[in-house]
Amino acid sequence: MIIALALVGLTVATVWLAPRLLTLGHWQVRFPRLALAAWHAALLAGVAALVASVVVSVLVAVGAAGASGATAGTEGIVATVAGWTALLVVGALAALVASRHELLVDMQESERDAVLAAPHEVLATEGRTELIVSSIDRPFACAVPGRSRAIVVSAGLQRLLSPAQLGAVIEHERAHLVGRHALAVRLADLNAACLPGLRAPRELRRTTRLLLELIADDHAARRAGAAHLANALVRIAEVETNPAAELRAARLEGRRWRPARAASRSSVLRAAVGAR
């Protein structure tokens, strides 16, 4: 019983403490990968503590029921009630998580349909990933995860950027797909959707997106050249008011980068837009 309560306490502590500890200082901007791992480790720790508390209280209840002949006192009743309550809570939580997950999947699918609704052409294919140029005029690029993985860039973006800059953008989107970033987004979104109004889930959700962009920026900078990516961000910030893009460019410029490795320059997708 005490163990179960302690585990519930641990869950609450994680929820309360994690965002406060993890937002100290600015190291996250420098080490986005490590930061993302820490955030999601905190999330998993919270969930694990919750699950463990339920398991323990159920086990206590089962133990009490098994020995009910001997100890039919109030302790047995309390343990049984607590066990059943825990199971009920788990059932309700599972239903909640399932319905929220379905909602998120729907949202993502309708968004993907909206992106692919405009006329588009497949420029190249690499493995399971397609490079799609959509006729949308607004400068735009995104990664579409799932079974039919795709990187979508708009005709507007193609006009705006040089081939090398566009190549860097494609490499950025590729990092999202290769790194399965959509999974982290889904996890953070699901957590936030199941716990509306709490600070920790909201922070996790927001920070996950920011860190994933920084991680993808770093990946693209290493493979396609930091200068190209920074210039692409600056160009986009020029035509669309986008302070975040400007800051991401400044972040790239403020660091030293080794020249992009020759071996990594062979991406079929980047070659398709003529980037070297």
Binding site: L104, A141, E173, V185, R206, T207, L233, R251
Partner: peptide
């Protein structure tokens, strides 16, 4: 739900980035 290249980050993120830089 989809990760956009230059999608809008939250105002908090922008402030955080600016502060860090």
């Amino acid at each position: 739900a989809l990760l956009q290249f230059a999608g809008d980050l939250a105002d908090d993120d922008v402030a955080f980035l600016r502060d860090a830089l």
